[in-house]
């Protein structure tokens, strides 16, 4: 059979590896902030994610090792443990595994998951999160920003949706959205969740609209209600908008002009 003999872009596995690599500074800062418990949380979340993914793959009668090798489960675990630094370890494991099983495997594996497992996992954990005033985590935010910029430079970041979100946040500064910029969850969701392909529209225009809509929804929620956690709100908005992604695709995707 014909083989695409030269590859001009990294494969899925190497993409996911580089996304993990871009998270390294953030992980380091979190370890520094929270100490060994954070390491334990990270390790157990990863284990639970891998377990859930293999279970799902086995259930769907797919080859397990090639599926795991893509690294998506690991990425989900790391993202969730960064998002939920203060959650209890069992809760973290439960929502990581649950999100992977429910939102990825049940929908038919990566690529078919209409709702991003990280956003879903965050929402799953939300009711049990300790309520408290959100605090700005500037170092972590900066580390994430740096990682995102590195991804952008590598050409691995589909930047339209994050750009749409940031634009809206910047425009809404007079309304008082400035504090959002200090939230590490915002950067994490923007750089690693909103840039995912299957949960967002596929056309650049659709992604821009998606990002802007997410920003507007999120800002109206946090300013109009008393919900203090930007991350959970944004995750909920993303899930809500993901449901409209197929519609946006239908509107923006066309075969193009015939020649």
């Amino acid at each position: 059979m014909n083989t695409p003999v030269i590859r001009l872009a990294p494969t899925l596995a190497s993409r996911n590896r580089q996304q993990l690599l871009a998270l390294l500074p953030a992980i380091a800062i979190q370890l520094w902030q929270w100490g060994p418990p954070a390491l334990l949380a990270l390790a157990s979340a990863s284990a639970s994610a891998l377990l859930a993914d293999s279970l799902g793959l086995a259930w769907r009668r797919q080859a397990i090792w090639p599926g795991l090798r893509q690294g998506e489960a690991l990425l989900t675990a790391v993202l969730l443990s960064l998002l939920l630094p203060d959650a209890a370890v069992p809760l973290l494991c439960l929502c990581t595994g649950g999100a992977i099983l429910l939102l990825r495997q049940l929908f038919g594996g990566s690529g078919s998951s209409l709702f991003h497992p990280v956003a879903g996992g965050l929402l799953l954990a939300a009711p049990w999160l300790p309520a408290g005033l959100p605090h700005a985590d500037i170092p972590l935010s900066l580390a994430l920003l740096a990682g995102g910029l590195w991804l952008l430079w590598r050409g691995l970041l589909r930047w339209q949706a994050p750009l749409g979100l940031l634009l809206v946040v910047l425009i809404a500064l007079p309304v008082g959205s400035g504090w959002l910029l200090g939230q590490s969850a915002l950067w994490l969701l923007a750089g690693w969740v909103m840039s995912d392909g299957s949960a967002t529209p596929i056309t650049p225009r659709g992604r821009l609209v998606y990002g802007q809509a997410a920003g507007m929804l999120c800002i109206s929620f946090v300013t109009l209600t008393t919900q203090p956690d930007a991350g959970v709100t944004l995750a909920a908005c993303l899930l809500l908008l993901s449901a409209s992604a197929p519609l946006l695709d239908r509107l923006t995707l066309s075969p193009g002009p015939r020649t």
């Binding site: 899925l12 090639p66 690529g111 589909r158 392909g197 056309t203």
Partner: peptide
């Protein structure tokens, strides 16, 4: 692997497919 709908193919296609 299954298509992850990254859109890279569409952005590189010289025939705008």
């Amino acid at each position: 692997q299954p298509c992850i709908r990254c859109g890279d193919c569409a952005s590189i296609c010289p025939s705008q497919l």
